[in-house]
Computed example of a mutant assay.
Amino acid sequence: MEKDSIGNKVAHRLLQLRQANGLTQEQLAERANIDSSVISRIERGFRTNIRLETLDKLTKALGVNYTDLFTFTDDKQIQKRIEGKLALITDKEALQTLEKLIDILSEK
């Protein structure tokens, strides 16, 4: 399967969401009432023609909506964008405020 295909992106996103919820494939399968082999094949990119019914079950079991499922982000890209924006800020007080905000967010 092509690395940047929608099927691969969905597979990777489902894996991210499952792990973020602290679930094994078996636990997610039980919650979604589907076979764990289906989740395994999806996450490994072997099943790209996912039925809408299956996607619906998975989103409900993960407690997300379709927007969350189809939001493909790369943490490294986000970090680079933030760093680029920070480099544009020259106001010392604004930088100090941002630093405090980052400290607060880092504690969570």
Rank of each mutant, 00 (worst) to 15 (best):
R81M: 08
K57A: 15
L17F: 12
E99F: 00
G45S: 02
K100S: 10
K76V: 11
I82C: 04
E83H: 00
H12Y: 15
Q77W: 09
Q19C: 12
T24D: 03
T67V: 14
T97H: 03
R81T: 06
I6T: 04
T97L: 07
R44M: 12
D91H: 06
N65H: 14
K3R: 15
L69R: 12
L14Y: 09
L58K: 05
N33S: 06
S37K: 06
S36T: 10
K85N: 08
D4I: 03
V10L: 05
K60E: 13
Q19A: 14
K9A: 15
Q19Y: 13
I6P: 00
I6D: 01
Q19S: 14
G63L: 08
L14F: 13
L17M: 14
T54R: 01
E93R: 02
M1W: 13
R47W: 12
R31F: 14
E30I: 03
E99H: 00
T54Q: 00
A20M: 15
G45K: 01
R47L: 14
K57G: 04
L88T: 13
G7W: 03
S40G: 13
E30R: 02
G45W: 02
L86I: 08
G7P: 00
I78Y: 03
S40E: 10
T97D: 07
T73L: 15
Q27E: 05
L105A: 04
E107F: 10
S5G: 10
T97F: 05
L95P: 00
D75M: 06
E93T: 02
E107H: 08
T48V: 12
D103S: 11
E83M: 01
A87V: 09
I82T: 07
A29N: 02
L95A: 04
L86K: 07
E26W: 08
R13V: 13
I34T: 01
E99W: 00
L14E: 12
G63Q: 07
L86E: 05
Q16P: 08
G45R: 02
F46I: 07
E2R: 11
G7V: 03
G45P: 00
I6M: 04
S106R: 05
N21S: 15
L17P: 08
